[in-house]
Nucleic acid binder design. Structure first.
Lengths: 106, 106
DNA sequence: CAGGATCCCTTTGGATACTG
DNA sequence: CAGTATCCAAAGGGATCCTG
């Protein structure tokens, strides 16, 4: 799963967040820690498998942490790292740009 | 090729630029108009087919314009639209973030 | 030069069933 | 609840050959 970092900075960023779901996951975690089920619900149409694999790869990239509680039923919480949270300006820009684009193309 | 705009602004932005190559194309066009061959060369490892299909879909999205000159050999120039150029702040943020990430993970 | 056409591979995502 | 395992479909991308 771990790939080499590209030489180009913008490619590095893209590699880490450009999947269909990762930006949505990050956005939903900007509000704070969430459980697996909460994430799945707030994202909506994502399948368990895909959510799991995205979360794992983002953990590996250092964008978020995964904390497992030894309880029954199990509880797993996901939290953005500093690195993950530092993507906020990019996300905000993307939201603003997207709004303007939607307005112009509705 | 034309897809419905998602309800969510950030998804809209993602849909338009999150492919592997689109951000690189936009970045290369930030400097000004370029010919097909120049783009292909500056991007490097992209194949003709993929470059063509990305350019067409970006034209359809209103991010760039395509101008064909009736010459032999043919000349085709691509230029960012205002909309495409307005992605600059996002690109810049991505470059900055990518640099910091690379530095932290080298 | 700037592509179109074709074939194939890999990756991502989706559906369903099962489990500690 | 939060996964795993398995199978499958679709899309993006790559390679090669051909052409106005």
């Amino acid at each position: 799963m771990k790939r080499e970092l590209p030489a180009c900075p913008v490619e590095t960023t893209l590699m880490l967040i450009s999947d269909r779901w990762k930006v949505l996951i990050i956005r939903d975690l900007m509000d704070g820690t969430k459980r697996f089920g909460e994430l799945k619900k707030s994202i909506g149409s994502i399948s368990q498998k895909v959510l799991t694999s995205n979360l794992r790869s983002m953990e590996e990239s250092g964008l978020l942490t995964r904390k497992v509680y030894a309880e029954v039923p199990p509880r797993v919480e996901y939290t953005l790292t500093e690195t993950g949270y530092s993507l906020k300006p990019i996300l905000d820009s993307m939201v603003e740009w997207g709004k303007a684009y939607q307005k112009a193309n509705q």
